[in-house]
Every structure is written in structure tokens, then in C-alpha cells.
Design a binder for these strands. Structure first.
Lengths: 141, 141
DNA sequence: GTACAATGTCTCACGTATGAAACAGGCGGG
DNA sequence: CCCGCCTGTTTCATACGTGAGACATTGTAC
């Protein structure tokens, strides 16, 4: 019986990405070490895919790479009911749901999320009120 | 000179979130352990904020919580040019930018992202075309 | 050739996260 | 009362990731 590897950390991907960027920038291991706070020895190990880095170093390195952590750690398949709600019957609470998603999006600054949410709310209420008594296929001039 | 804590793992937040959801679902530590693959003892420690979990367990738990990892690990300030564009002048390319963000949101399934993007596009074009030559405050009930 | 500096890798002692198992406490049923 | 069951917490030995420093190698200047 084969015990398959349960490691959720994609060391290969991370290591390759680091090395790629590092060489691209013509930096030495110690340079990157100074910039990221990860020691050179550990960096070497990571680039060569030996062992798996701890949470702090993953945070530091994905931050340096400017890449989302989900890309490195665990391939999660989201099966959130909240999202299903969006897909299946968004009707009334739509702006609220969108706002929730926007707030949850860590890629957006709070201000941006707020602005988008507000814009969406106004646009959506207009849209739904004008299209509720009309044909649903009313797109594009 | 005070050496401030450099830990990038927000154990408090993670622990509270786990406990909240677990009690909300009336599950025991061992139940969650079975579902997530994290041992009950480790779960207890995490809920109480002792030490910091390793990468694998963070991945498992954020996945179970269905919460983006950035929320737990390291407060990275993204300095992506794409985002700045959103903040500073969204005007014309707005729907495209929103769509890009939606696609980038790992919390959304591709279908959901697509649906939201399309909906936003339709609503936005309507809204902007109707409000461009009029008063901006024109929200009838 | 001989210094010297810089690179990537490796060794090693140390700290610590982990899971299994033991533990203490609560809560009913018999 | 007490027995079994389930709860959360706490040992305990083990495993392993880490950083400082040693190391081997290469390139460059003199």
C-alpha cells in the first residue's frame, strides 16, 4: 500500500520561483537573505527543494515574490455555500454578497473594496429595478 | 532595545476563528481533527494560541475555514501596479479591472467569478451611460 | 602562482511543532 | 454511587526546520 505524500507545501514550485527571480535580478543568495530575512542556508535548501520551509519563511518569500500563498500551499478546492448562493440565486442579497466578497479579497485595499461595493450596489439596484419587468435579454446596444 | 516579535503567523486570529466555527457547528476537537487531518492535541494548542502551527496545518485549517491564508500569515502590502490602477482612475476600464480582480480571487470558483464579472459589466455600462449625462443621484425606488 | 573575495552547499547544535497517549473533568444512565 | 463515554488539555519522545558558521569551488587581481 502506497502512502502518498500528504505535504501541502509545494516546495518545488516555490524553490523554482525563487531561483528564477533571484537569477533574473542577478542577486546572490545572501542578497536575497538580507532582503527577505530568510537565511542563505535556508534559501539554498528551499531553492533545491529539500525539506519544507516553515510558515514564517513561506510568508516572507511569497511576499518577496509577490505571489499569492495559495499558489504555494495546498490546492484547496473551495466548496463554500456562500459562493453557491451567489451562483444559484443571487437575486435580492446580491449587493451584500458582492460586498462581502470584496471585503474578503485581501488583494484589495479596504477603500477600494468599499468603493467597488458601493458602486456595484448603486448600479445593481438600478439594473434590477429596470430589468425586473422587462426582458432578461436586454444587453448591448 | 526591545526586540519586537517577528512572527508572521497570526495565531490568535486563527485560533479564534477555528474555535468560533467549531462551536458554531457543535463539533468536538476530535471531529475537526478527523475532518482536517490535524490532531486534536495540536488543534487545542492552536485554539489557545500556544506556539505557531506549521505550514501544512495552516493550509489545512485555512482551507477548512475557507479563509484566505493572507489573513492568517503575514500582512503583506501588495504593491502591484494593477491594484494602483484601480484605486487611482477606474473610470473607463472599470469592468475589465473588476473582472481581473474577480478572476484573481481564489475564493471564487471560475464560474462564480465569471458570472459576477458579467453581471457587473452589464450593470455598470447601464449605470455609467445613464448617469453620464444626468445627475449622479438618480436612484428611484 | 598566490592572495583574496564571493558564491552555493553542507554540518551541527538548538529550538520547537507534532501526534499518540495519558490525564482530569463533566454528564448522564443504571 | 459508579460506571462508561465524551470532552478539552497536557505530557512525552520524536522529527525536523532553522541560522551561524565551516566548507569547497570559482573567478579576479596582482
Amino acid at each position: 500500500m502506497v502512502q502518498l505524500d500528504k505535504s501541502l507545501v509545494n516546495t518545488g514550485e516555490l524553490g523554482r520561483a525563487i531561483r528564477r527571480k533571484r537569477e533574473e535580478l542577478n542577486m546572490s543568495l545572501r542578497d536575497v537573505a538580507d532582503e527577505t530575512g530568510v537565511s542563505a542556508s535556508t534559501l539554498s535548501r528551499i531553492e533545491n527543494g529539500t525539506g519544507k520551509p516553515d510558515a514564517d519563511n513561506i510568508a516572507r518569500l511569497t511576499s518577496w515574490l509577490n505571489v499569492p500563498m495559495e499558489r504555494i500551499m495546498g490546492n484547496r478546492q473551495i466548496n463554500d455555500d456562500e459562493h453557491k448562493a451567489v451562483v444559484y440565486f443571487p437575486q435580492e442579497a446580491m449587493p451584500d454578497i458582492v460586498e462581502a466578497h470584496l471585503r474578503a479579497d485581501r488583494n484589495l485595499t479596504p477603500d477600494t473594496a468599499k468603493a467597488l461595493a458601493e458602486l456595484f450596489r448603486v448600479a445593481y439596484t438600478q439594473f434590477s429595478s429596470s430589468s425586473s419587468a422587462e426582458e432578461s435579454e436586454r444587453n448591448r446596444r
